[in-house]
C-alpha cells in the first residue's frame, strides 16, 4: 500500500498544495494535476528532453525522471512561466525569429534547456550550447536553427545586461 501525502510545490511563483502518491512523477503533477501541459511527455526515460523544466538551482531538470514527492517544499519553472509581463523571453523571441520550430512538440523542452543554460552561463559559447542541447532532441528538424536562435539569445541578453549597466548604446 502506498500512502498519499500532501506536498507543497511552487510552480512559476505560485505556491500550491497537492496530494501525491510516491510513484507520481513531477511530469504527471504538472500536466495532469495543474493543467500545465506545455511540459511534454515523450520517451519518459530520460532520452529526449521534452519534459525539461527548470529547478530551483537554475538547472534543467527532466520531470519524467523526478518523483513529485522529491520536490516537496521546492520550486520549479515551466514553459508557462518563462514569458514576462513585457512579453516573450529573449530565448522564446529568438526561437520565433529563427524559425527554430516545426511541429513544436520539442519546443518547450528546448526553450527550457537553453534558458537554464543561459541563466547559469550567460556567455555560453557554441560548444556549451551544443553540449546542453545534446539532451533535448527535436524529432522534426535538425538542431541548426535552434542553435542559431540560442546564439542570438546570448547576444541579446548580453546587450540587455550592458544596457542595464551603462545605459543605452550611443550612435
Amino acid at each position: 500500500m502506498t500512502h498519499r501525502q500532501f506536498i507543497t510545490l511552487t510552480v512559476n511563483g505560485d505556491r500550491r498544495e497537492v496530494v501525491v502518491t510516491p510513484e507520481m512523477l513531477l511530469l504527471d503533477v504538472l500536466r495532469d494535476g495543474f493543467g500545465l501541459t506545455g511540459t511534454k511527455r515523450g520517451c519518459t526515460s530520460g532520452a529526449c528532453g521534452v519534459c525539461t523544466v527548470q529547478g530551483d538551482d537554475g538547472r534543467a531538470v527532466l520531470s519524467c525522471l523526478s518523483l513529485a514527492i522529491q520536490w516537496d517544499g521546492r520550486s520549479v519553472t515551466t514553459i508557462e512561466g518563462v514569458a514576462g509581463p513585457e512579453g516573450l523571453h529573449p530565448v522564446q523571441q529568438a526561437f520565433l525569429e529563427f524559425g527554430a520550430v516545426q511541429c513544436g512538440y520539442c519546443t518547450p523542452g528546448l526553450v527550457m534547456t537553453v534558458k537554464a543554460l543561459l541563466d547559469r552561463t550567460p556567455a555560453a559559447d557554441a560548444a556549451a550550447i551544443d553540449e546542453a542541447l545534446a539532451g533535448a532532441i527535436c524529432r522534426c528538424t535538425g538542431h541548426i536553427k535552434v542553435k542559431e536562435a540560442a546564439r542570438q539569445a546570448v547576444l541579446r541578453l548580453q546587450a540587455a545586461a550592458q544596457e542595464q549597466a551603462h545605459g543605452p548604446a550611443q550612435g
Binding site: 530520460g46 531538470v61 527532466l62 543554460l117 546542453a132 545534446a134 539532451g135
Partner: peptide, 9 residues
C-alpha cells in the same frame, strides 16, 4: 555520462 540533463540529476 549521458547528457547535461542526466548529469543534473
Amino acid at each position: 555520462v549521458g547528457s547535461q540533463h542526466i548529469r543534473n540529476l
